[in-house]
Amino acid sequence: MDKTLAIAANTFREAIRDRVLYLLLGFALLMIGSSIFLSLLTVGSREKIIIDLGLSAISLFGVLSAIFLGVSLVFKEIDKRTIYTIVTKPVGRAQFILGKYLGLVLTLSVNLVVMTLGFYALLLYEGAAHARLLPAIGLTLLELLVVTALALLFSSFSTPILSALFTLGAYLAGQLSWSLRLLQDRLDPGIGRAVCEFFYWVLPNLWRFNIRAEVTHAVPVPLAEVGLAVVYGLAYAALLVFIACLSFERRDFT
């Protein structure tokens, strides 16, 4: 386990010594801050607009960072040949993948905390720092766990650009996968329904992690629903990381 943690710590160190992360973080904070000005231009409750924009910015930049850093996570190690001296040490390939994943998750979590602090500083200034918003940010972290795992899985057998496209595609499909259930209800029993059912289960149900509208409008969210989303997110991410490990186990490093 210590070897996995060593790889995770090194991955984190690499990210925090990279300027790209600060650039993304800077943009996110800028966008959160700009919600004040946007709220002036819009009709409606100023507080709700700031909250809605802020939460969306946190999610959007979190996902962008996850895709951007995730697809090059393993590819860079192979491309720069740093992996040669890692996997020839007494380190399992699965330990390597898991370490890289945990390192990126740690980076994204720190990123998320910084964005949340910036967001709450703004809310304090506006007098709207509600604790009810925190579960929505917590579920964003779970969304990031899944998106990072997707990026890792695709990048374990593909190039960064293709992996980024695949991950983005899976992310968008995952936001809308609830509509497969609607479609299924309109179809007659048969192959069409089976296909809908299949994709509903295979695609990541990322919409489960989105309770931003509810918390913005102070609509209570059942605890069971949040609990289910947490269990689903952890299980889905774990499965993806497991498949990434399997795919990596057989790989040649030329």
Binding site: E14, D18, Y84, T85, P90, V91
Partner: peptide
């Protein structure tokens, strides 16, 4: 087995931020 082996690849490249 790998615990008892050391390897240096050709033209190695390492983590240059360390």
């Amino acid at each position: 087995a790998r615990a008892r082996m050391g390897f240096l690849p050709e033209n190695p490249y390492f983590y240059d931020y360390l």
